[in-house]
Design a protein around this nucleic acid. Structure first.
Lengths: 117, 117
DNA sequence: TGCTTATATAAGTATTTAATTATATAGTAA
DNA sequence: TTACTATATAATTAAATACTTATATAAGCA
C-alpha cells in the first residue's frame, strides 16, 4: 500500500525539487537544520532569492521554521504527509554534509546567547 | 554507495517529472509501452504537445522509441543510467494500469499487419 | 531613542515552459 | 500518382518562474 500520494501532489513536489538550488537546500537540511543567513553564504544567489525558495518549500509543508530572536532556522518537516516520498528521493542524492562543513558557515546565534535572555 | 547521480542531473530529471502530464506518461509506460496515438487519446492536450513531452523524456534518455510502420511506440528505457533513480520515484506513484485499461485505448498496428508486409 | 542586523515582501524583468495552430515528413494504401 | 494517416517540427503566445533591486518588518543593542 505504497501510493498514498496522488499524481497531482507528486508532480507539485517534484516541480519544487526540480530546481537545483531548492533540491540542494533540501538535501542540506537533511544533514542539519540551517539558518537563512547560512543559506545565503552557501549559495550564489541573493538573500531574497533564498527567502523565496524557502517559502515555497514551507508552503508545501516540506520544511518548517523556528524563530530564534532575529534568526530563522529551517529544518525538514518529517511530520509532513509527503515526507516519506521526499525522503526516498533525498536518499538517492549525494550527501551535502561535507559541503556545509567545508564552507564553515555558522549562524551567530548560540544556545548561550539565547539562554542569557 | 547509492548516489551515482549528481545534483545537477537529479534536478534535471525531477524538473521533467515535475510536470503532471509527463509524470503520468512515465507511470503509464511503467504499466506497458504505448503508442503516440494512444497518448493522444489518454490526455486532453494536442498531439504536438504529446510529441514534445515525449521528446523531452527521450532527450534525457528516460524513454526509447520503436518505429512500427507509421506508428511510434514508446517504452521505459531501463538501460538508462538514471533508471534506478526514476524507478524509485515511479514506484511511489499510484498505478495507471486501470486507467489505460478503462480508456480502452489501443493502437491499430497489430503484429499481423506488420507480418503481412 | 536611533542604528544595525536578519529576514520577508514588493515590484519589476528576463527566461523558461507548456500549450496552441500551422506545416512538414514519412509510411500506407487506393 | 494521389490521398490518407501518424508523427514531428516550426512558429507563436500566454503563463509561470527564478532572479534582481528596493523596501518593509522586526529583533537586538548602543
Amino acid at each position: 500500500m505504497k501510493p498514498s500520494i496522488s499524481m497531482e501532489q507528486a508532480s507539485k513536489i517534484l516541480k519544487l525539487l526540480g530546481e537545483r538550488n531548492r533540491l540542494t537546500m533540501m538535501k542540506m537540511l537533511e544533514a542539519r537544520s540551517l539558518c537563512v543567513c547560512e543559506f545565503v553564504e552557501l549559495f550564489n544567489i541573493s538573500q531574497p532569492a533564498i527567502s523565496q525558495h524557502l517559502r515555497k518549500l514551507k508552503d508545501l509543508g516540506l520544511i518548517q521554521e523556528e524563530k530564534k530572536g532575529q534568526w530563522v532556522h529551517y529544518s525538514i518537516n518529517s511530520a509532513c504527509e509527503y515526507y516519506p516520498f521526499v525522503k526516498n528521493i533525498l536518499d538517492s542524492l549525494p550527501d551535502q554534509f561535507e559541503i556545509i562543513k567545508n564552507s564553515n558557515v555558522q549562524c551567530n546565534v548560540s544556545e548561550d546567547s539565547m539562554l542569557r535572555k
